[in-house]
Design a protein around this nucleic acid. Structure first.
Lengths: 356, 356
DNA sequence: TTGAAAGCGGTACCAG
DNA sequence: CTGGTACCGCTTTCAA
């Protein structure tokens, strides 16, 4: 009731304001003014709060005003008020370098989105993830998933207070896995690859493993032993070599192997090494799978199913891993850390057959 | 000065409050209370606003309080107040499916981060990107980059009002490229691949192109013609076939080609097709590059440089494209749409040599 | 040199 | 049924 407000009618004031040029996005206040109601009523209607009764006619007017103004919700304001978050932070250890990173991301993305969340991703290339974690935290993410396609340790020192953190395809070097880890079941995958060959009747196996100090490589080798034991096969019959997961090491090792002996089946550390092996075999005039069977690992899109013959391999379920990780983080914390092993199915294609 | 406030000393009040259990993250108010100053002073100090003079001793006290409380800025609130954004929206058309998507993302990520931004990425798999754009807009992103590793049209109908949008590796089917496009210079890349072979002395070329209706495939073919013209070579001397960018099509076409004739060099639509060609050649007992030279396209990590012989190819600069796109969007709009072509360098490795 | 207060765009309680 | 109002955490005048 201050004097000088010239408070004739509300409509008069609205018109005066309407004359001023609009700047920025329309807000609920703009919609309210347009519809001639209060801003809170707009909030109720736009949020479809059916517990608050609003006259059908009023509701229509508000909806129409919002439409004509091109109103869009300001989620920042909403989340500030509600003190809740619909963003998942992901710190990625090498999106660029790994061909699987995309699948991992896509999986997280899908699960996040299904829960109305969206992913903020920061890639820390090499250097530790602390700064990224801090940044994400400032932005109020629901939780953070540390993602790597590499299945190895990752550097994060400063475990921030109450942060919800989860590791997929990796684990913190410093220990303390937060809400848990999601990893591929490489041991069972390795067992399957070997069991498949054993069942086909192969007895002279060669194992072209990954680097000796690689965790996944070790698991896959352990799986091989499991299969051997289960089949009561002599472990000394399989010749083992370590490579570096690169195609060239597969090529080199295969040549060394066949210079010295004549295995009938090759179990490779990954699809790349399998490709190298295939190339070496081709050059030697050996045919796959007629003369030699090959099984890979990873089921690398655009490789395993693309080469000729198509590669029998074990699939690394990156998409599923991402899905699972995001799912775990967007729903309330379970309290106890979750250690999940995701199944790696054997994909039988053309590169394996019975020995002749 | 209300009665009953028992406003003895400020310290007394602070203690009373301090006794209540803390819930949620500490705010500037908490820091202010702890340091015995007002919240605005905290803001000045924490933002290091040197234009506002604050006693060194006060400053120290505030910094100490923030540290001991574990204070972290709430960016949501800050950005709401400032009405500015430090998030870049990216809608991705197939992160999972494309092996290059990671590099594209990493590039955007790097540029965004250099400007204090972070990327929110939504992958729309197949269906149109409208919903994703709307969501990102609600979240107040600075701009949106539509990203695809495929170099093709993309479906976004509802071009929202004043949104800053940019397309990398794609363009909107419906026209209107927003602030512009960033694409690889495939024509020049195609020219380089062909020129390289021509310079080596090859005259019997075969072109194993991508799908006839693919834009990039067309550009690369046009580049081949450019090279032929520049070398005054007879265009009819090069036999052309269309494949589907898959390894198997490279394998099949190569077999057909060599059943009918004997080119000395193969220009492939991409590295996958080159791999197929290599496999087919190997099986026929033909050696690369001794008998036949091969050049690929893409420089697909874990393929081109991994196979034996390593592939001479043209590099698709996805990382650079991503970088450029994000750079353009985090800085003020230029006004005029930006059409950028990023250079695709020729990477000479082992699969090409002079014809015998 | 410091503090009070307005307001960014919403939500939700409470009175009418 | 509807509007007024406090408040989420922060920035920034304006006074003291």
């Amino acid at each position: 009731m201050t004097e000088g407000s010239g408070a004739g009618t509300g409509a008069g004031a609205a018109e005066a304001v309407g004359a001023r040029a609009k700047v920025g996005r329309p807000t609920m206040n703009d919609v309210a003014r347009e519809a001639g109601v209060s801003q809170s009523t707009v909030s109720f209607v736009l949020n479809d709060r059916r517990d608050i009764p609003v006259a059908a006619e009023t509701r229509e007017r508000i909806l129409e005003a919002a439409r004509s103004l091109g109103y869009r919700l300001n989620r920042r304001a909403q989340e500030l008020r509600l003190n809740r978050s619909t963003t998942l932070g992901v710190v990625s250890y090498g999106v660029a370098s790994h061909p699987f990173a995309g699948a991992l991301l896509a999986g997280m993305q899908t699960a996040a989105r299904a829960a109305g969340h969206v992913c903020m991703v920061i890639d820390v290339d090499g250097h530790d993830g602390d700064e990224a974690v801090a940044d994400l935290l400032d932005r109020g993410v629901t939780g953070i998933v540390h993602a790597s396609a590499g299945t190895g340790p990752v550097t994060v020192n400063r475990q921030l207070g109450e942060t919800r953190e989860l590791f997929v395809g990796c684990w913190p070097e410093s220990g303390g896995t937060g809400e848990g880890t999601v990893l591929p079941d490489d041991r069972e995958g390795g067992r399957r690859a070997a069991a498949h060959l054993l069942e086909l009747g192969h007895r002279d196996l060669a194992f072209l493993g990954g680097p000796a100090d690689d965790f996944a490589a070790g698991e896959r080798a352990a799986g091989l032993d499991d299969a051997l034991r289960a089949a009561s096969a002599d472990p000394s019959r399989v010749v083992r070599r370590n490579g570096d997961y690169g195609s060239r090491s597969g090529y080199r090792i295969t040549n060394e192997l066949f210079d010295a002996g004549r295995p009938t089946a090759l179990i490779c550390g990954n699809d790349q090494m399998a490709l190298g092996a295939l190339l070496a075999l081709h050059e030697r005039g050996l045919r796959v799978p007629d003369d030699v069977s090959i099984v890979g690992y990873d089921d690398q899109e655009a490789l395993a199913d693309a080469i000729h013959p198509a590669l029998t391999t074990v699939r690394l379920p990156h998409r599923e891993m991402g899905l699972r990780a995001a799912e775990l983080l967007v729903k309330p914390a379970s309290g106890t850390p979750h250690e999940e092993l995701v199944d790696c199915p054997l994909v039988v294609r053309e590169s394996t057959a019975k020995p002749r």
